[in-house]
């Protein structure tokens, strides 16, 4: 899922210090899982803001809420009254949610309350690791199920480079060498010979390099909604 972290409180206060009625809008999706933008974090941020306004002697009204997903307009529509009532909104959804909320309520000022980082996994309590770079053309079938684009610092398709040492990347002793992991996995699968065959240059057009991306699934557009639709 998408991984985000809360922005420093000072930065958020700096955004909203001249507003009085604030809506802190969380999201029950990815940011709840990584504990950056769910109801718990909305409450924490709301309390901190109330404390700030009180100490600064400013009138204020801070409301916290979350919706199922900020990347769907059906759910964003649920925020209508609360957004209208606020002077400014702090969205603590991922960068997608923040932008979609802004698009939906275009005359309202919306600030980001989190920094959105990457698509990753929950390695341990409080440890999130990147796994997918969203290149749009998955190569995992030939790399032992380990992504060289997300997990090699140089996104090499013919690694490991000469800086790989004792299983670690040259950028840091805390970063596993992605190609070392690939090698170990291919060795386990008996596919090490594939290392002698050069992998051709990648077509990056399906990645961010091709410009902002849109997926149009005609099959889904034609199909009847399965369930839970507002349009009956």
């Amino acid at each position: 899922m998408i991984k985000a972290t809360p922005k420093p409180l000072e930065e958020i206060i700096n955004y909203v210090k001249d507003f009085n009625k604030i809506l802190v809008a969380g999201c029950d999706g990815c940011v709840t899982v990584c504990e950056a933008g769910g109801m718990k974090e909305a409450k924490v941020l709301g309390s901190a803001l109330r404390l700030y306004y009180t100490q600064a002697g400013k009138d204020h009204e801070v409301v916290e809420t979350t919706i199922t997903r900020q990347c769907d307009k059906e759910y964003l529509a649920e925020l209508k009254d609360m957004v209208e009532n606020a002077d400014a909104v702090i969205s603590i959804a991922c960068g997608c949610g923040i932008q979609y909320l802004t698009e939906m309520y275009n005359d309202k000022i919306v600030f980001p309350g989190v920094d959105t980082h990457f698509m990753g996994i929950n390695a341990d309590r409080g440890i999130f690791e990147e796994r997918c770079a969203g290149c749009g053309q998955c190569v995992l079938a030939s790399t032992g199920g380990i992504c060289p684009i997300a997990r090699c610092s140089k996104r090499m398709l013919n690694g490991p480079c000469g800086g790989s040492e004792a299983g670690k990347c040259e950028i840091s002793k805390d970063t596993p060498c992605g190609w070392h992991l690939i090698y170990e996995r291919l060795e386990k699968l008996g596919q090490v010979d594939s290392f002698t065959k050069p992998v051709d240059p990648k077509n990056w057009r399906t990645s961010r390099d091709g410009g902002p991306r849109v997926i149009i699934r005609e099959d889904l557009r034609k199909a009847e909604p399965q369930h839970g639709s507002a349009h009956s």
Binding site: R155, M156, C161, D200, P201, W204
Partner: peptide, 11 residues
């Protein structure tokens, strides 16, 4: 890192 060293050789 559009290419890597092996792909530069190919090029």
């Amino acid at each position: 890192f559009d290419l890597d060293s092996v792909q530069l050789i190919q090029t």
